[in-house]
Design a protein around this nucleic acid. Structure first.
Lengths: 137, 137
DNA sequence: ATTAATCCTATAAAGTTAGTAGAGTTTAAA
DNA sequence: TTTAAACTCTACTAACTTTATAGGATTAAT
């Protein structure tokens, strides 16, 4: 399941994607439109900025705007930024690999192979969902 | 990500699936073979029993055995039993549907449609992974 | 200087997870 | 009929994670 952070991030990105080119959106504007607690959204937008998904303009009349193309922001990206690994266990993860503490011999783990298959399929599906594809629906 | 409960459940089921037909496995035996805390495993096996995936024999020389066919226990089943919804948000879930509290109009939610697509694909993949398929690898 | 915005860090409340503990119940065998 | 060895059940707790909230610092336009 997605955390609220990830859900709010997606909603915020969808909001930004629907604005006119060159429009800058204030946090409060996004928060009210998407029904997200404002101070919580501040953190989320900062995370998105650090992830290079959005840009910001500081000071009066400042705000946020999409930095990447709508086609280049995928569900997989946002999941990884806020909720971490796509895989069902760290040992099956590409970007968040970690050994299971209870694992005796990873190469002989029956579970891991299946979970790698799942990760491959899920990742492919999640990379197919972009901000652009969601807005188009 | 899978909880430890779900991971341990899968490891226990894999252990049971590898035993001889009619063999009954004690909790301690599974716990040691799969490196799972015994008292924690007790709870998990009870959950699996309540889910009708395993059967048990009580008393001395009792233990657990697979109740369903290896082919009929899928990763999706175990995920749902221990970790709940396959979908990324409750509003996109089949078995654990719930409305988002921050949702203004579900029918107009841009996110939901995409998440339903993901759920369909992930579910299909997870239903393709069975205890039998994992043991065969 | 003032105003309105982002930026940053700390903290707290609530919920979830991962176990542990201990007693109860059932069954087989001596 | 007693004992041993197993499952069954409920309660609890410690650690962790999530979900925010608070308060100020910084930046930039007027």
């Amino acid at each position: 399941m997605l955390s609220n952070k990830a859900k709010y991030a997606l909603k915020a990105l969808l909001y930004l994607a629907q604005q006119d080119e060159n429009h800058i959106s204030r946090t409060i504007e996004i928060a009210e439109a998407a029904n997200i607690p404002k101070k919580f959204l501040e953190q989320i937008l900062l995370d998105l900025k650090r992830g290079h998904f959005v840009g910001s303009k500081q000071g009066k009349f400042g705000g946020y705007y999409l930095l990447k193309s709508k086609n280049d922001i995928t569900l997989a990206d946002i999941h990884r930024l806020f909720d971490g690994a796509i895989a069902l266990l760290p040992c099956a993860s590409l970007n968040f690999y970690e050994r299971c503490s209870d694992c005796v011999d990873e190469s002989e783990c029956l579970l891991r192979h299946g979970l790698i298959t799942i990760r491959e399929e899920t990742l492919k599906a999640m990379q197919g969902i972009t901000i652009a594809s969601l807005v188009k629906i």
